[in-house]
């Protein structure tokens, strides 16, 4: 898996990328809170917020097509909840509540996307740690981020090996058991790898702290 897969645009060099990390975290949380707390009857405020977010994205040089794809990925579920449920009571009654859900979701989504696309994940973790995230949690997150790529590569290799040995699908049941065995093997391998890494870390004087180069 290529490293660009997870946070694609986070290593750019625009003014948004150069802002201090903690400022970016605070700004994003403020935008999300504003979207959640301002009543939907004050919709011009939400409009302004949307304009500001779009401006921030364009300054950070994040393509619109990417944003549309990401929002489109999450929207079906949100719209499903927002519209399918209140429809039972008649559209006119349900519309304000449904619109509130949809507008708030899109705005919060845009704010969150901006944060991760202007901040590399390791910097984000360092910033969150300085905002009060416990050290142990941050260490685990850093470890997880590092080894996600390894586990994904291993999964891809095992799937390729399986495909190379499987010529036709033999029904859904076979596919289920094959996929479950794949995951079982991957689980065993990953836990063994974690034990090996832990021994190696202890051999190098691991004391529970992850040290980051600033």
């Amino acid at each position: 898996m290529s490293p660009e897969f997870l946070d694609r645009f986070s290593r750019g060099n625009t003014i948004c990328h150069r802002l201090p990390v903690r400022l970016k975290i605070v700004l994003t949380l403020a935008a999300i809170l504003a979207a959640a707390l301002i009543p939907i009857s004050a919709w011009p405020v939400h409009g302004c917020l949307a304009c500001v977010l779009f401006a921030a994205h364009s300054v950070a040089e994040i393509p619109v097509a990417y944003l549309v794809r990401r929002v489109g990925f999450v929207m079906p579920l949100v719209c499903g909840l927002a519209f399918a449920v209140p429809l039972g009571d008649g559209l006119a009654n349900a519309l304000p509540a449904a619109a509130a859900i949809a507008v708030r979701s899109v705005l919060s989504l845009l704010a969150g996307l901006w944060l991760v696309n202007v901040t590399p994940f390791d910097r984000l973790l360092a910033g969150l740690q300085r905002c009060g995230m416990p050290r142990g949690i941050a260490a685990m997150l850093a470890f997880m981020y590092r080894y996600t790529f390894v586990v994904f590569d291993e999964l891809a290799k095992m799937r390729a090996a399986r495909r190379a040995r499987t010529f036709s699908s033999r029904g859904a049941w076979r596919e289920w058991s094959a996929a479950a065995q794949l995951l079982g093997r991957l689980l065993i391998r990953s836990l063994d790898r974690a034990e090996r890494i832990h021994s190696a870390m202890c051999a190098r004087g691991w004391d529970g702290r992850i040290r980051a180069l600033e």
């Binding site: 142990g136 997880m144 999964l155 859904a172 836990l191 974690a194 034990e195 890494i197 529970g208």
Partner: peptide, 28 residues
């Protein structure tokens, strides 16, 4: 054992993350 927890838990998290990418076809 907190020291052992960090690599094991982190690895388990990556594993669950990867496992959620493996699709199981729904029957029919």
């Amino acid at each position: 054992a907190r020291l052992r927890t960090v690599p094991l838990t982190g690895m388990m998290a990556s594993l669950v993350f990867a496992a959620q990418m493996v699709n199981f076809p729904l029957f029919g």
